[in-house]
Design a protein around this nucleic acid. Structure first.
Length: 323
DNA sequence: AAGTGAACCTGAAGGC
DNA sequence: TGCCTTCAGGTTCACT
């Protein structure tokens, strides 16, 4: 699922449950995802307080008060869901304000001890085969809750790194600038692209050049910039190593696309849901992604969106107006 | 050195 | 219905 806007949406969805919360229990339901889980992950998590929940590129960074930060990646199919364990009365009054009653279970836990004195504790959500990590937390903004990581394809992972040297971790050290940060400039990209013979599609997917773009948003950015995904990256740099006007435009549309997608809650393909079960809606704004044979959305362009394969992945673009 | 393709997994969708 | 193929929002590794 996840490119930068989707991961940022996940982060925002998890923050009310996790930030400032204490992890009451952790269940690790298999020994590994793409990589083995850290040794004693369960012991590391249980009793820890989450002091910050941030994001870098497509990585979620879960900072614990033990001097350790978890580096979590969603791979292609990872998702989190949050299941409130709040008292029935509290949930009812809150949910009445914003929609229909949710179908939570009212059966009490086998352990009748209330999580918080005076509150009733409801049954945990039913777990499926691909629910790999289950955290029970309390003390975040929404109170007691379960946070469950699901990942059918298991391309995602959770690693632990010392907080003090977090950004020296191999997965973070070489990342390019955040698309919405000040470090992403036409000059930066000119420096990265100069002399490069890789097609723009591949150059923008390379996380060392700019962080957080994936197949969707590269296609969308190139469409808006009217640049062919097959054009060589080096052609956007002058002989003196300066950005061309086209590269200035490309830099701006990357910001625009990513910013708009975050505001829309990301893109929901194949029924992917946010942490609260709702859907992002940026997919309705796609210009070209997954729109093969559709009319090109560029004003006055009579072209048709075409699908090609570049380095084994689908690229969607309009050959008429993207040059 | 840099650039391309295969590999890692499961599940959904489409063709026959 | 069922079987087969293809494809999927990512990343790393092994080859030219």
């Amino acid at each position: 699922m996840p490119e930068l806007p989707e991961v940022e949406t996940v982060r925002r969805g998890l923050a009310p449950a996790l930030e400032g919360a204490r992890i009451v229990s952790a269940v690790v339901r298999r020994p590994d995802l793409r990589f083995p889980f850290p040794d004693e992950l369960k012991d590391l998590l249980e009793g820890a307080r989450i002091t910050a929940l941030t994001r870098r590129a497509k990585y979620l960074l879960i900072e614990l008060d033990k001097g350790t930060t978890l580096i979590a990646h969603l791979g292609m199919s990872g998702s989190y869901r949050v299941h409130s364990l709040l008292d029935h009365t509290l949930r009812s009054s809150r949910d009445r304000a914003s929609g229909p009653e949710p179908a939570w279970s009212e059966r009490p836990l086998s352990d009748p001890t209330p999580l918080i004195p005076g509150q009733f504790h409801y049954e945990r959500s039913t777990l499926g085969a691909h629910d790999h990590l289950v955290l029970e937390v309390e003390g975040g903004a929404i109170g007691p809750a379960e946070v469950i990581y699901n990942d059918p394809r298991r391309f995602g992972f959770v690693l632990a790194a010392p907080t003090a040297t977090l950004y020296e971790h191999p997965f973070l050290a070489e990342l390019g600038p955040e698309p919405l940060g000040n470090a992403l400039t036409p000059e930066h990209l000119a420096g990265r692209f100069a002399g490069k013979r890789a097609p723009l599609k591949a150059a923008l997917l390379d996380q060392k050049n700019v962080a957080g773009l994936g197949n969707i948003y590269v296609c969308e950015a190139l469409s808006r910039a009217h640049l062919s995904p097959k054009r060589l990256a080096g052609t956007l740099v002058t002989k003196k190593g300066l950005p061309t006007q086209r590269l200035v435009t490309l830099t701006q549309v990357i910001r625009d696309v990513i910013g708009e997608a975050i505001e829309a809650g990301g893109s929901s393909l194949r029924d992917h849901k946010q942490t609260d079960g709702s859907l992002g809606y940026f997919q309705h704004s796609f210009s070209v992604y997954d729109r093969e044979h559709a009319a090109c959305p560029t004003p006055n362009c009579k072209g048709t969106v075409k699908r090609i394969v570049q380095s084994g992945r689908s690229t969607f673009y309009c050959p008429t107006c993207q040059r």
